[in-house]
């Protein structure tokens, strides 16, 4: 069953046409990987799904559980269960990590008709989750992403993901700038979220991350379109022969 359906989407960034009629269907509970060369439109695709202000959608549609999300505000899409792990998480001085995440978690809970968590309940859960990701306790009270190393930022993204329980998880170059330990911690965090219900879209330039998060499907993105879809075996072919070996865009 498809949870997210991208239909013939066309999108511009500024004047430039990046996505050129892209089609993609994400199957519920599966791990999809999008691979493609630089400039193929990988980041634009994730930005389009979450409704980023840089992206101007000029055609097509995106359906979440059969409903179009294109008219939705970014926070509405988030509350509906879409989570993007940013390639470059922004730093927000003065806003503490805990205060921010509690606001987000409670927004989600209110949306789901649940009671808000009080500060103590929330902190307990946040500390526990942070610990499993190997994060230092002081990261909780520090300003959001401010002065975090590359690895700390990515762990923080995973922490938010685990606390927010999203249904569709977009991971944009999750492994960029990570050393081997951080990569392991981050992928363990992601794998812990796999429950047969959640859907993942792993966007990556390199196949390294796919050794840690095993994909069910591989989609090759070239020049704004999905040009090929296959199973995990495609990774080896891409490794060996490169993106050139996959058929040109139609």
């Amino acid at each position: 069953m498809s949870i997210l359906e991208i239909k013939n989407i066309k999108a511009n960034i500024g004047e430039k046409n990046i996505l050129k009629g892209l089609n993609l269907s994400l199957e519920k509970g599966k791990v999809h990987a999008i691979m493609g060369p630089n400039g193929a439109g990988k980041s634009t695709l994730s930005k389009t799904i979450v409704g980023h202000y840089d992206v101007d959608v000029t055609g097509g549609d995106i359906l979440l559980r059969g409903e179009s999300i294109l008219e939705m505000e970014p926070e509405e899409r988030a509350l509906e269960g879409i989570f993007l792990s940013f390639q470059h998480p922004v730093e927000i001085p003065g806003v503490s990590n805990a205060y921010f995440l509690r606001t987000a978690v409670n927004a989600k809970r209110v949306h789901e008709g649940k009671e808000e968590l009080n500060a103590a309940e929330f902190l307990r859960e946040m500390k526990k989750t942070a610990e499993t990701l190997g994060m230092k306790p002081e990261m909780i009270s520090r300003s959001l992403n401010e002065g975090f190393s590359g690895g700390e930022k990515k762990r923080n993204e995973i922490l938010q993901m685990q606390m927010l329980h999203p249904d569709v998880i977009l991971l944009d170059e999750i492994d960029s700038g990570l050393d081997i330990d951080a990569l392991r911690a981050v992928s363990e965090g992601i794998n812990a979220m796999k429950d047969g219900e959640r859907t993942f879209l792993v966007i990556t330039h390199y196949s390294r991350i796919l050794d840690y998060i095993e994909p069910d499907y591989i989609h090759v993105l070239k020049d704004g379109q999905i040009v090929h879809t296959g199973g995990p075996e495609l990774v080896a072919q891409l490794e060996e022969k490169g993106y050139e070996s996959i058929g040109a865009a139609g």
Binding site: E73, E75, F83, F86, A104, L144
Partner: peptide, 19 residues
């Protein structure tokens, strides 16, 4: 970033201003 985490626009503005 804040809105992607489900925080409404005005709350997000207020959060950044407090920071």
């Amino acid at each position: 970033y804040l809105r992607q985490r489900g925080i409404g626009e005005e709350d997000a503005v207020s959060m950044i201003v407090h920071g």
